[in-house]
Amino acid sequence: MAFLEVKGLEAFYGHTQALHGLDFELEEGGITTILGANGAGKTTTLRSICGMVRNNGSITFDGNSLIGKATENIVRLGIAHVPEGRGTFVRITTEENLRLGAYTIKGAKNIADAMDRVYNYFPRLKERRNQQAGTLSGGEQQMLAVGRALMLRPRLMLLDEPSFGLAPLIVKELFEILRSINNDEKVSMLLVEQNATLALNLADHAYLLETGRVVMSGTSEDISSDEAVRQSYLGY
């Protein structure tokens, strides 16, 4: 069985159905990306995994069914969600944000280690450790969101449009750090992106979503070389 296995996933906002029977898998240690236009259901997919929307179907993570579990308990299994909009706790400091990320981790030493690792990846956050998090720049807040997710020593990271609203140079830096986190920490990643070029570069597998359904899947190379995808999503 795959590390993360989603079968027949349906999700609803009120009476509106947003996902219509989604199937996909993710291998341990890999990076998988979900591509699609606005409203295709990418964010909803991540939210479903975390139990944040009403859903049906089956989601299995490392042998545990996630359906019907409360968000906080899903997180405790080692799934860290870097949400759309970054979810910064704006009124407290950068370091307190990171401390919150380690809420499920026991032991002062473990927390200090995790903090060092995050500061190692993101030295900028260390400079800003005592600054109120709401005053950080967009790029810094995105780094903080990834850092906060990393604090809980996740086995799977869900990344919701990490490039959104950031300058190209910062995006490049961020994605390089994501690659090294994937390499060094053995964290699997499920990446949702509108910027398909960027996502296909980082990921090894890709799924293409249209109006709540998977319409194509394969390795990143296969998807990138597909004529239709190139025209609609990659723009060349």
Binding site: V75, G87, I92, L100
Partner: peptide
Amino acid sequence: TPIGLAMRAAAANPVSARLVGISV
């Protein structure tokens, strides 16, 4: 205290609080 911090977080931003494993 961590619990005190978690309580502040849960009040300020319940969605993010759940995503770090806090039982709001």
